[in-house]
Structures are given as C-alpha cells and as structure tokens.
C-alpha cells in the first residue's frame, strides 16, 4: 500500500490508506462501515476480517456497533457520508458514545455540499453545529489530504470522541496540525479565522487587506487563547469567522474567548435562512452562500470599513 501523501491524493484516499496502516499497526483499531466506501476497504477487510465491519445500510447500527466495540476497549473508526453519520443516527452519537462515556473516531465524507448535484439529502452543512450540542467532541476540519493523515493518526492514539470532516474541497498545501490556530499572516484591522478548506479563498480575498489570518484545522476545542492573543495584538477587536458549514457555528466560542473584550464578529458560512434548492457544482453553492473569493472579499471589506 502506498503512502497517503502526495499530489493527486484526495482526503478520502488519504483516510482509507491511513486507516489501513492503523489496522496493520494497532490491534485496537477497527473500521466500521455502512456500505459506503466498503469497496475501497476491501483489501483491509481481507487482512482484518474481524476488525473491518460493514454493517450494511444501517446507520443507527453503525454508531451503536462503534459504541459497543469501544466498550470492550477497541478504538473504532466509523465512516460514512456526513448526513448519515451525524444527522440520521444523532441519538446514537449522543447516547451510544457520549452518554456511555466512550469514544470513537467518526470520519465523514461529503461535507456541506461536495456532491452538489445530489441535492439536500446528501448535504450536511449542520453537522458541526449538531455535534456542538454535545460535550467532549474534538472536531477536525482538514484543508488538505496530508492533514487528514496526521489528524487521524493522532485521533487513533486516544479514546476521545473525534469527528473528522473530509471534503473534496481544499487548499493547495498542507499546514501543521495540532493544538492551536496557525498564524499565517498578521495585520492590524481585524482577525480572520479560516477553517479548513476555505483557507486559500480567504487568503486570496484578504491579499490586500491589513488583517491577521488564523488557520484552523481543529475547531473543537476552539483555540480561545490563540484567538485572544491575535485580537489583542491588532488595533481593533474585530473578528471574521469563515467556516465551510453553517454560518455562525463558532460565534459562541468567539464570544466566550472575548467575554471581557468589547468586540465585533462577522460570521461567514453556509446560509441558515434558506434551504438552497439548487444542484450544479460546489462552486455554484459557494457563490450562492458568499463563500467564493468575491463573496468573502466583499463582506470582509465591508466589515473592516464599518
């Protein structure tokens, strides 16, 4: 099996390759599937028939089985399309993992609208906001396949509840993962937090602006210390969040981080006020939600001038 890094590799391919290596290396690791991606895990399933479990198109069982395996000390990685991993079996996520006091790594594909033409049934812009109602979840939103490798390896070593949100979208290059937001650019007029795959668009949209740009491939826990330090170093306590899922998902975390600092927040993301009944390509949806370079630039310009 080849390494998971390098150009041309998708996040899903990086995930499958890394999970395969983890199965080979660590007898605690198991992969639980619900038909999705079973084809690309076929080799791993032949090597580890007791640790690659395809439950079929049964998503409540997908999460319940992961919880049961965790109860025996295993480290399950449960994987399917985002709406069927987080939304359909949400009570299992709440009760079969969190309430039991056990963990798993949930790895989704599809993101907010990777398969734009698939329509609403296959879009999950609310996944991170939903998980945000539950305590104790680590949420990774990688922006590059190489980040997926590192984040999954770290997650497999713990017993934490971890959500790893993969997408076809992404940035030209990887950034180091780990605790805290990465400071990619410093400026005086605002602090812009770019989450995962929107980073390159944010950098393009702010190229001629005097702003700090922070990069977050991990949004929960939220790096309150890093945000606060960046805000206090700037001239104005103005924060722009750019998230590739529901707009404002992290606004409460910003408010908490800056509870004693008078500040303003502008939250960009997928619109909450409408169900966008369009198909097409992800770029069409980015434009409709103002998450393309032009939309991001226009709103950050307006905010920093106000």
């Amino acid at each position: 099996m080849s390494g998971a890094t390098g150009t041309g590799t998708t996040m899903r391919e990086a995930f499958v390759a890394t999970a395969g290596h983890l199965l080979d290396e660590d007898p605690r690791v198991a992969v639980v599937l619900a038909a999705i991606s079973a084809d690309v895990f076929a080799d791993a399933a032949r090597r580890h028939p007791d640790r690659v479990i395809d439950v079929g198109i049964r998503e409540q069982l997908l999460v319940g089985v992961a919880g049961g395996m965790a109860l025996t000390g295993m480290r399950p990685i449960a994987h399917t399309y985002a709406p069927f991993l987080v939304e359909r079996p949400f009570e299992q996520v709440k009760l079969d993992l969190g309430h039991q006091g056990v963990g798993a790594v949930l790895v989704s594909v599809g993101a907010s609208y990777d398969w734009a033409a698939g329509g609403r049934t296959h879009h999950a812009p609310g996944d991170v906001a939903l998980l945000d109602t539950l305590p104790g979840w680590t949420v990774h939103v990688p922006g590059h396949p190489d980040e997926v490798v590192d984040l999954l390896r770290r997650a497999a070593r713990t017993d934490d509840r971890v959500y790893l949100r993969l997408t076809n979208d992404g940035n030209a290059r990887a950034h180091p993962v780990g605790a805290g937001f990465q400071v990619l650019r410093t400026g005086r007029r605002a602090v812009v937090v770019a989450v995962g795959p929107v980073l390159d668009r944010v950098l393009a949209a702010t190229a001629r602006l005097d702003v700090t740009v922070l990069y977050a491939s991990t949004v929960r826990p939220f790096d309150a210390v890093g945000l606060r330090a960046a805000v206090l170093a700037a001239d104005r306590a103005d924060v722009v969040l750019v998230e590739p899922y529901l707009a404002g998902t992290s606004t409460h975390a910003v408010a908490e981080a800056l509870a004693d600092v008078p500040h303003r927040v502008r939250a960009l993301g997928v619109r909450r006020d409408v169900e966008l009944r369009g198909y097409g390509e992800p770029a069409d949806h980015d434009a409709a939600h103002g998450l393309d370079v032009a939309g991001i630039a226009a709103r950050i310009h307006a905010f920093t001038r106000a």
Binding site: D50, G64, V65, A66, G67, G68, A70, M74, D96
Partner: peptide, 19 residues
C-alpha cells in the same frame, strides 16, 4: 432510550471477537 442496547450488544460481541 429504547433500541440502543441490542446494537451496543452486537458491537460488544464484535469487539470481543476481534480480541
């Protein structure tokens, strides 16, 4: 909440089998 024990039991049986 009803309907959680049996899926957890299947996972427990699978976890023990894997070990």
């Amino acid at each position: 909440s009803l309907g959680h024990g049996l899926p957890l039991g299947v996972g427990t049986a699978l976890g023990l089998r894997a070990q």
